[in-house]
């Protein structure tokens, strides 16, 4: 049983989105590290959260491209796989690479993605032409999301610090699932013949902001009051993007009317 997901025309080019996603994600993570180290504070942790939002937009666009083919297992599966690959690659990168860790992690994740996509097409014979490229993008997005959220919690790129403040505290569970949902939920919620790219991607900004919010809450316990900045910025982005999303929903629907409750005995 494959779910005919549908999906409208793409107004924004995938290469452009990939550039913004990868560039924004890496920039956010490194700016956080550099500025926090220079100032000796945690106030710039929100930048990693902003990088995560850029990466989830890239990932969500990849999800919508591959799911238009009807992968048969539902949208959540591919989001979870992205984060599974991203997790292994991200931790590998951080563990061996030191400050260069995020770059190594993202590269390894994209390699994993391409490879798994190749296997899916060649051996399982899914024959989805964009599979390799999409899984590559998703692997990269997964790695950026995990590293970005981890850095937003720990305050700097340091494997021992991330282990101590993110993994050992168990926050990684929240970051993992919040990041996964940020990537997979928007297309899952918007799919159908009337799906439009801008609506899905604006929805992604709001889910990305929620993931950032979760990281901000966790960071209150690790970097202290500076984490409040991440929380506040995430809330502002969520309110703005959700209002924007609601405007797009009203644009795309034939009509939004309040019907009130059913009258007494109306059933």
């Amino acid at each position: 049983m494959s779910v005919a997901a549908g999906g409208g025309e793409s107004k924004i080019d995938k290469t452009k989105l990939m550039m913004y996603g990868l560039g924004g994600g890496v920039l956010g993570i490194y700016l956080t590290h550099v500025l926090n180290t220079i100032t000796g504070s945690g106030y710039f942790s929100f930048l990693a959260g902003l990088g995560v939002i850029a990466a989830v937009v890239m990932g969500s666009d990849a999800v919508r491209r591959v799911c238009s083919y009807g992968i048969g297992t539902g949208v959540p599966s591919i989001g979870l796989m992205a984060m599974g690959m991203g997790l292994v690659a991200a931790m590998f990168g951080l563990s061996i690479g030191g400050v260069a860790g995020p770059i190594i992690g993202i590269a390894v994740a994209m390699g994993f993605g391409y490879f798994v996509g190749l296997l899916a097409n060649k051996i399982i014979k899914m024959n989805i032409p964009v599979m390799e490229e999409v899984l590559m993008t998703l692997g990269g997005a997964g790695a950026i999301v995990l590293i970005g959220l981890s850095v937003a919690v720990s305050g700097e790129i340091s494997y021992p610090l991330i282990l101590e403040s993110v993994v050992n505290t168990g926050y990684i569970a929240i970051l993992f699932i919040a990041g996964t949902l940020a990537i997979l939920h928007p297309f899952n919620a918007n799919l159908g013949p009337d799906e439009t790219q801008d609506r899905t991607l604006v929805h992604t900004i709001s889910t990305g902001a929620l993931a950032m919010f979760a990281a901000g809450l966790a960071s209150l316990a690790t970097i202290g009051a500076a984490g409040l900045l991440t929380v506040v910025i995430a809330v502002i982005i969520w309110i703005k993007s959700f209002m924007w999303y609601f405007a797009l929903v009203k644009r795309d629907s034939s009509g939004v009317v309040g019907t009130g409750l059913l009258p007494e005995g109306g059933l």
């Binding site: 048969g72 297992t73 796989m81 599974g84 690959m85 292994v88 798994v116 899916a120 993994v167």
Partner: peptide, 20 residues
């Protein structure tokens, strides 16, 4: 978490094989 990561990759690939 690593085990979960490796677990989901294998589970998803297998579920593509049975088309869901």
């Amino acid at each position: 978490f690593f085990a979960i990561g490796i677990f989901v990759v294998n589970a998803v690939v297998a579920s593509y094989n049975i088309q869901g």
